[in-house]
Write a protein that binds this DNA or RNA. Structure first.
Lengths: 143, 143
DNA sequence: AATGCAAATGAGAATAATTTGCATTTATGA
DNA sequence: TCATAAATGCAAATTATTCTCATTTGCATT
């Protein structure tokens, strides 16, 4: 039984080429991707999945908690990333849009506390922090 | 000098009817609102602001850090809320969509640490936590 | 208080992301 | 291997958001 079939059967999902490829692409990427990014990567890798199918697969993964959907500010495209350890969070400068990655996830501990307190099975989270970077907080229009 | 004029002049912004109304609506609301929600509320209150202007005002407020833009899962409309103390975070059940409000913000402390460490002027953050609620984690399709 | 001007607004057309319908193909369990 | 339900591709439909441009408004300065 192929490794991925086992993985998918945990969720009672068919192990299709498209789902495999999307999972590959998401697991390989170090940054969140848009549906179109994934579509283009599948094409590059000679395993094209139609864009609407990419959307359907992503929706499914989000519904299962395998993937986190978020909308990084400014553009309004949805971004998708694996809901797993090893993810990164960022501080985004509202003014110059510079992005600073945070060393470690401030919620790692908190999630454990929360599991005990709420009895939820927590599968992931989204976090983004905003502000003015040291340069911009000086220049900015605010008094 | 009207109270709001002072507020707006801090950001070198004109004190217009639209901006006042949008701020009123956002400050009054206990939940994040879509641009359309705000448009409809302005209409109800006999101070209609055109939808495109609502979008423009919201973009401006986001750019200044007065408002936080986020995209609560499932639907893909942007949601807007005041970037202020007293905000709430939530755990959303991936399966039944139930929302549980968290008592206190797990980032309150962390933001202070971060200010010192990064010298950013932090104006706000977005946080959403996902998982299966106690009922759904039993029923769920996952093995 | 009146004036000038840059900035803000309204209306609706344009854009672009996402969803949907339906005919065809594919994965899985018997 | 076969039957069947589920997944996919394609193109059209939908919908949130942005943009254009003519008109209006807020505010600094007389």
């Amino acid at each position: 039984m192929p490794e991925r079939t086992k993985f998918f059967s945990h969720w009672k999902l068919k192990n299709t080429q498209g789902r495999n490829k999307v999972l590959d692409i998401l697991e390989t990427s170090t940054i969140p991707l848009t549906a179109e990014d994934i579509y283009l990567k599948s094409k590059e890798q000679n395993a094209e999945i139609s864009l609407s199918t990419v959307y359907r697969i992503l929706d499914l993964f989000v519904a299962k908690g395998i993937v986190i959907k978020s909308n990084i500010s400014s553009n309004n495209k949805a971004m998708f990333e694996i809901a797993k350890e090893g993810h990164k969070h960022h501080i985004v400068c509202i003014h110059c849009k510079k992005v600073l990655a945070l060393e470690n996830c401030p919620l790692k501990c908190y999630e454990k506390t929360l599991k005990n307190k709420t009895h939820y099975d927590i599968t992931g989270h989204k976090l983004e922090i905003f502000g003015y970077c040291p340069e911009c907080k000086v220049l900015t229009d605010r008094k």
